[in-house]
């Protein structure tokens, strides 16, 4: 393997890892804190992707593509936050302690939401223009790397650092971390964990929507089922990383993203995806709690 191919595959794999991390981190936190398997998380991702597509193709009056992308990014993120908030506030909150109903509710929202997007915009893949600078290539160690990949990677790293800072340095983060570890104890201390639930859902929705924006750039287009497909790999990332651990999710996203890219390149399309599932099975057999998870769930 030449160095160029290695560098290109590594950067592409890390870009993919970034997208995985954005959707998986919210999923992991929501599960860690509230024991809710949020099947609507894929919808948040789709919402982000479609909001970007919508702004990029309809907001022709913003002439600069760079500025338009910035606007799209902001609108998509806010929309993701709002949808995440609304899902918790109006649906999930009504059924605390009833995990099955919570899962079923998010499942219904997910399927109805995807069908809504499909009914409005059809199930055909939609592409959107990206700013000029993202289409250029940077030469690193002789390899021609699309700038968009580097941008995805950079945004994901910034968000990872930001998320860790919020979790470690702020009071909200402290409550969330404590809640993941032992929710009853936090409640017994007289702290309203329910507020954190809403916060985690909104932030998770926002992160997944950003994942949708970057996913739309990475895969050069969006489809309604896009989020659901990503959700499956996000599940794999979450289980391998350890439920509830943001650091574990990041580590596992990198492993899964790189494995998928390298194996798909050398062994053929699809084989990488299968390898990832084998990786999951091996993790479960050797370490059911995941790489950085505390206890087996």
């Amino acid at each position: 393997m030449s160095l160029q191919v290695f560098v290109l595959l590594s950067v592409t794999g890390l870009g993919l890892a970034g997208v995985y991390f954005l959707i998986a981190s919210g999923l992991s936190l929501i599960f860690g804190l509230m024991d809710v398997l949020n099947l609507a998380h894929g919808l948040f991702f789709t919402v982000g992707g479609y909001a970007t597509w919508w702004v990029m193709t309809r907001f022709q009056w913003i002439e600069s593509l760079g500025l338009r992308f910035l606007v799209a990014f902001l609108i998509a993120t806010v929309l993701g936050l709002a949808v995440g908030w609304a899902t918790e506030r109006f649906f999930v909150r009504r059924f605390y302690g009833d995990h099955v109903t919570q899962i079923l509710i998010t499942l219904g929202i997910s399927l109805a939401g995807v069908a809504l997007v499909g009914g409005w915009f059809s199930y055909d893949p939609q592409t959107f223009p990206v700013p000029e600078f993202m289409r250029q290539v940077a030469v690193i160690a002789g390899a021609r790397i699309p700038v968009s990949r580097l941008l995805i990677l950079a945004i994901s790293v910034v968000l990872l650092v930001g998320l860790l800072a919020v979790l470690r340095r702020t009071r909200h983060g402290l409550i969330i971390r404590a809640g993941v570890e032992n929710r009853q104890m936090v409640q017994a201390m007289g702290i309203d964990v329910a507020k954190s639930f809403t916060l985690v859902f909104a932030v998770g929705g926002g992160l997944a929507a950003i994942g949708g924006i970057l996913g739309g750039v990475f895969f050069a287009g969006v489809t309604p089922e896009f989020g659901l497909n990503m959700l499956i790999f996000a599940f794999i990332v979450v289980v391998i990383g350890g439920l509830g651990s943001v650091e574990g999710t990041a580590l596992s996203a990198v492993i899964v993203g790189l494995t998928q890219q390298f194996v798909n390149f050398f062994a053929g399309a699809g084989v990488g995806d299968l390898t990832v599932v084998v990786l999951l099975a091996v993790t479960l057999l050797l370490r059911p709690q995941g790489l950085l998870g505390e206890v087996a769930r």
Partner: peptide, 11 residues
């Protein structure tokens, strides 16, 4: 529980 759901989904 939920991890079982995720694993069956992956398979």
């Amino acid at each position: 529980g939920v991890a079982f759901a995720m694993v069956t989904l992956a398979f």
